[in-house]
Design a protein around this nucleic acid. Sequence first.
RNA 1: GGGCCUGUAGCUCAGUUGGUUAGAGCGCACGGCUGAUAACCGUGAGGUCACAAGUUCAAAUCUUGUCAGGCCCA
Length: 1098
Amino acid sequence: MYSSVESRPDFPGIEKDILRFWEENHIFERSVEQNKGGEPFTFYDGPPFATGLPHYGHIMVGVLKDAVQRYNTMLGKYLPRRFGWDCHGLPVEYETEKLLGISGKSAIEAYGIDKFNEACRSIVQKFTSEWRSTVRRSGRWVDFDNEYRTMDLDYMESIWWVVKQLWDKSLLYQGYYILPYCPRCSTVLSNHDVALGGYRDIHDPALTVRFPLTESALPVLPGSFRAVVGESQISFLAWTTTPWTLPANLGLALHPDFDYALVREESREPGEAPNYVILLQGKVAEIVGKDAEVLATAKGRELVNLEYRPLFDYFAQLGSEGAFRSHCADFVSAEDGCGIVHCASGFGEDDYKLLSAAGIPVVAPVDEECRYTEEVRDFAGRFVRDANKDVSKYLKDAGSVFRQGQILHSYPHCWRCESPLIYRAISSWFVKVESLREQLLRSNSEIYWVPEHLRDGRFGNWLANARDWSISRNRYWGNPIPIWLCEAGHYRCLSGRAELEELTGEKITDLHKHFIDHLEFDCVECASEGTERKMHRVSEVLDCWFESGAMPYAQNHYPFENKDWFEKNFPAHFINESLDQTRGWFYTLTVLSTALFGRPAFKSCVTSGMILAEDGRKMSKSLRNYTPPEEVMESFGADAMRIYLLSSAVVKGEPIRFSDAGVKNVLKSIILPLWNAYSFYVTYANADKVFAVSVPQNPQNPLDQWILSELETLIGKFRTAMEQLFLPQAVTPLFDFIDLLNNWYIRRSRRRFWKSGRDEDKCDAYATLRYVLDQLMRVCAPLIPFISEKIYRGLQTEEQLAHGANGVHCTDGADGAAPESVHLCSFPEVQQAMRRPELEAQMSLARRCVSLGRSLRARQQIRNRQPLAEARIVTRSETEKARLQELLGLIGEELNVKRVCIDENEEELVHYSAKANFRVLGKLLGKDMKLLASEVEKLDSAGIGKILGGESVTLTLNGQQHSTFELSAEHLDIRRREKEGFCVLNEGRLTLALQTAVNAELYREGLIRDIIRLVQNLRKEADLQVSRRIEILLGGSSREVEEALAAFGDELLSETQGDAWYWQQTATDLPEYGIGGEQGTESSVTEKVLLGIRCTSV
RNA sequence: GGGCCUGUAGCUCAGUUGGUUAGAGCGCACGGCUGAUAACCGUGAGGUCACAAGUUCAAAUCUUGUCAGGCCCA
């Protein structure tokens, strides 16, 4: 016996049973284990933050990863699947700060870095159990027990090794990064944080300041300026809304293409020497005054490298290094201020880039709380924003202020404490990515991208314009940068634990900051110079992106362990994450692998699109605009959700709007039909007691041959799509195949299963259907692992399952037994011998004929139950005629006609018209195409008939290139139109005509078909088993019904498992039914019959 | 502001190297069929292929521009 099949299956319930089955029998572990000697397939799982919950984005990539992994496992590849967690970084620190009720760096340091870090460690895996349960429920097989964590000692040690490699290759350097910084929280903010906090309007001072040129600058001025100014004082005018940055001013920037004006300032006191200023010509009226006279102009580029006197003397010594001069820069705007920008390299990104390119050192004289340091002695200890007034006053007293005002502008604020942010230079360690650009592009060219455009598009562009990568953070919970420094400025980068132990004599059990920051050792270089100095670790920790990018090495504790294995299996065959990782993980993986090994870290990458809510917006918990994944899986099942996602555009990097209705739809169009096919097989096999079904051996029935051929075609398409990692092209053929199986193979084969006895054809039918289902489940298994497991196992009898030996077919095991799980099977190979392309074409033609016939019946309002005498299929094509010949019986049965014949004389039934075949003729005729097209349209039906018959016709064109053209059939695109008065329908080369006349005999046969259906309905209502036998009681006054029974009574009995029928004209105890009529509807019935059934056997 | 992607039926999407009736599924309406199927089949309505210009005998398809949406970056 096969287990009986629930007719209304509870898919989520089934899935949970399957999950239990997998776990109890360790199917996942065994599926990996059994391939241990096989070719390895390397996969890298991108680590999610250990402090977040899984969302649809994770589920999407999880499902895709799972499908690819299951598929490759079924190909026999060895594919362990380690999960990983990203455990370090600011998100964890924020969580911990919240938990401890503290905020900011000084608070953390007061609390104690050791306690703080341990608190971070303890909350890191807060959400592990939620992850496990959601991932498990989605059907994704992944090894959680052997997961890697970026905070583990081995992982961290490998990261040190990676840093050391970069160090040895001189790819690391210390520089500055200008970042938004919150003075109150004493922390750097990411751009994401800035977006969170948003911009708001605040009032700031607006100060216009004179920067007087030194005497040495005068000879360098453009001649026109020199002529006006002579020996007088001349100043640049610059404008700022952050006066506090002026003490750190080290340069001025002008736009090379703008026009700058020389203007004479009004004397403040009579007799005073004249004073001149330079500013943007377009701003003269606004800033100096309407009446101000422009005495000379020059382009910005003519005014560069002019030395001016620093406003403050704090950094005056930098004048010798190039500070206090004018520069050209494109970022200068003509909108605000004077068109001259005051540059403080410590407090602005543009400023920093400009001045550091000119070789001027960075100056950022503020502490962690953004108070001036001692360097700015007049304001030391003052919070910079508060010092704006002091600075302004100081400059005013010094006579430097040209104008003072206020401005209301939008300005970024901290999302946590709402303080206005400050841009400031942060010292950071960088990887010299810019020097690697060419190698990065070379690595990228080796990667197979889905979608393809990412390679040269988004990712390629990003690499081509890559900037040096800041990898350090001034934080606590992270992997400490393994660089030690002595007071003499000597650096030493360590490569691992052993080296540190050797240098310090300490046993190292943990590499986190609070375990190693106190460790010091002697500086070797100093020693060689004869002095003795200690080295201390630099304070920074690594950005967590560095750690995830180094995951290929670190998860294997490379090179400390697994050296050979890693080197043989790098790069990974496959990774998959969503589009936002192009600049994230994909990038960091590629940078590190290229820097270390000169290769990409992965050979192929599928980039999924973003998952949006049904309303097209981002999924948002507060908006409640989506159903949580757990609930979707609870109502429709994980399989439905999986195949919905995998068949969508999201796997080619486009966004989708996730819709519950879409999931429900695939449940109806894929999962349920599969279930129905399975249920059909089991129902009849159980009723027929057909349990030992073999692989079909050369079946003779074309239906069997055909579906077996279609199966091979499916396997081929599926494999190709999976090799190309393009899932929708695997799913579409699957959809199509399921339709063919249900709505053609099973429908057309039903009677083969019903008939009594056990002839060869019936055995072939069982063998074929079981084989097809079994193979189909193996094909589906990677995509919909639950239902395919359920059906795969359901296709084995309870005895076979109990004894673990199937022994009859589709075996994988050496002992001839079918594996107990579909996921332990190998993926079907394409068996070319089974392919019958010609038969597939034949069947598709037959299906088109049937479709035409059905459409004709609908048009003529003749119900399908009414038998008709004849259908004529008309085609001139010899191939089509030959193809149809073998399937006439099948077509006749499906169309309920007594006879189907093939005819080639279509001219009786259709008119021809013709259009030029542009595809063929366009290349031949070029510009004369239009002429010919209009000539062709003039052809009449008879003329076209002749051409079809093989004659050719010469058309006169009088065209530019051709005066005549000899036309034959292949130059034409023939259209057919049905002639009036015939019951005929045409589609392309195929025409079908129905004989619609219904004679008495056909009419009576139709009546019997109506009665058969009524009886079947009664049986169904009475819930009778298929095999229960009945007697049929009939009555009424209809002569036609009586005659029909006399003629077709036997057919009635054989169709309904009837033993006998009885006719009584006055059977008043029976209900009455209307039958016959054109449409069989109540209003058009032509006969009435009294009808009842009773069982004869128990 | 820059890069990349997308715009085709009410909805979700196919659409080959340019070739003349632009397809499918869902939904809707009507009809049919039904002893595996809470299924299925047929018919119908519904399109300025975002817009504009260009290339071409011929453009949903190639080029340019515009508009709208998405993602990333600034």
